[in-house]
């Protein structure tokens, strides 16, 4: 099970996970870090394989012409799958995965509640994939900084000034290279 407040260790290699990225590591001196506003970060950990990973995503809103107010979850599903596949490639098993979710704040008043939509998507995804959610710290109006030690599962989440959070913009719905088809 993941614990909080990782101890300060010397010679830590800190890797930043930016929006749209994911990283997996079993390195005992690796720390994965990110700052979140309305984005959500998923931390996955397999306690038996001692490997962990983090992704950082922001779902896009549908185009104005779209009748539904639902966000486009394609990119979220994609980044979740990329993270899970990389975990499995590094010795993890899906049935052993434990998850933490962070972020999903609605920082800027007047904007669409995209943080809430991100948080809801992440919860539903984990439930649908039967991945155990052991802790979440989502919602509210504050930015968060997350530091995660992937080899031990230790994680620290603290609120930070919203000026530290990246100026999040939803991923454009139509990525030029998205879904490229090649028929043989």
């Amino acid at each position: 099970m993941m614990l909080e407040k990782p101890p300060i260790l010397p010679n830590i290699t800190r890797l930043t996970v930016l929006q749209g990225q994911f990283r997996v590591s079993a390195g005992p001196r690796v720390e994965l870090s990110t700052v979140l506003g309305s984005c959500v970060a998923t931390c996955l950990f397999d306690p038996e394989a001692e490997v962990g990973g983090m992704n950082h995503f922001l779902l896009s809103e549908p185009p104005a012409s779209h009748a539904s107010e639902e966000v486009d979850v394609h990119y979220g599903v994609y980044l979740m799958e990329m993270l899970i596949n990389e975990m499995l490639a590094n010795g993890a098993r899906k049935s052993r995965l434990r998850a933490h979710l962070y972020g999903g704040a609605n920082i800027r008043a007047g904007m669409a509640q995209i943080g809430t939509a991100n948080a809801n998507f992440a919860r539903v995804f984990l439930e649908r994939e039967r991945i155990q959610l052991v802790r979440e710290d989502m919602g509210g109006v504050s930015a968060r900084r997350v530091d995660f030690r992937p080899a031990s599962g230790l994680v620290r989440c603290r609120t930070v000034s919203s000026t530290e959070a990246p100026d999040t913009k939803p991923i454009p719905r139509a990525v030029p290279s998205r879904g490229e088809v090649e028929l043989f």
Binding site: Y75, V77, Y78, A174, R178, G179, V181
Partner: peptide, 22 residues
Amino acid sequence: GATGWIVKPFDTEKLVAAVRRV
């Protein structure tokens, strides 16, 4: 023996066009 290769995240229009074509 695959007929085609589609990259995720998929685009519905491209996917549907590929399915109709094959």
